[in-house]
Amino acid sequence: MQEIVTALANGSIYALMALAIGIIYSTTQIINFAHGSVIMIGAMTSYWLLSIFHMNYFTAILLAVLINIILSMVIYKVSVEKLGDLTQNSSWIVTLFGAGIILDNTARILFGTEPKAYPFLFDGHVISIFGTKIMIHEMMMILVAVIIGVLYQIVIQKTNFGRAVRAVSFRPDTARIMGIRSNRIVLMCFAISGAVAAISGALIAPITFASYTMTYSVGIKAFAAALIGGLGNTKGAFIGGISLGLIEGIASMIVPGGLKDAISFLIMIIVIIVLPGGILSAKLFTKGELKTEKI
């Protein structure tokens, strides 16, 4: 039971991280390989604000979100926008990887190599439900992830901006002749993605400790979750994240701990082979909906 709760909490954060990858992928068809680093920067800067400037949790995370928004916009401006048409040019693979490496090394120099104890929300207070001890922090992880997920869907379905995002992701050129500045929309998507990354980094850091190695230890899960849920499918990201959390949780109960990741990634590969569009593309979920004639 304990494990399941923890798995769900971690899964929610994986979902948030996958959502952030999906937001960018949906409008650009590129995978932000610097995303792990952006998550890490979110965690490290908020830790820094919490511990050095003794800010309260809310202000620290808010500032970290702002920093991450600016950072992500800079990443877009510097390593993506300059490349022009991304369908013709795959240099983004290199530039985004490069941006990630620069961020990691900068973080190592700024924050040092030692993992830091990141405080839990509500001082790690634990409540007992049916004999299972659940940290309020874990409940907050799930809650925040659900709120952000729902909020994002509302924005994307109901607002002018959301319509434009969907238009850009479907037919970027047609969107442009509607008067939508596709580059602006993509820039906004990078910004939102950075904000979500900061929150996900800050929420998982108490569990993993804040360290510049989060890029790899945590960031890699974001890509796995995004692939399981279907790249660019922002609803699928949640399914992907939660499934990854549960797969990990269940796998580590029944196999030696070291094999856990192997199993999660094996499942990821199977999903990609059987359902290239992610779990949500299974017939079970698509019902009678029209087939997307993606261009």
Binding site: T213, S217, V218, K221, S252, M253, G257, K260
Partner: peptide, 11 residues
């Protein structure tokens, strides 16, 4: 055994 640097050590 467990994977080094793993997020969750509850198991």
């Amino acid at each position: 055994t467990y994977k080094a640097d793993d997020a969750d050590m509850t198991p």
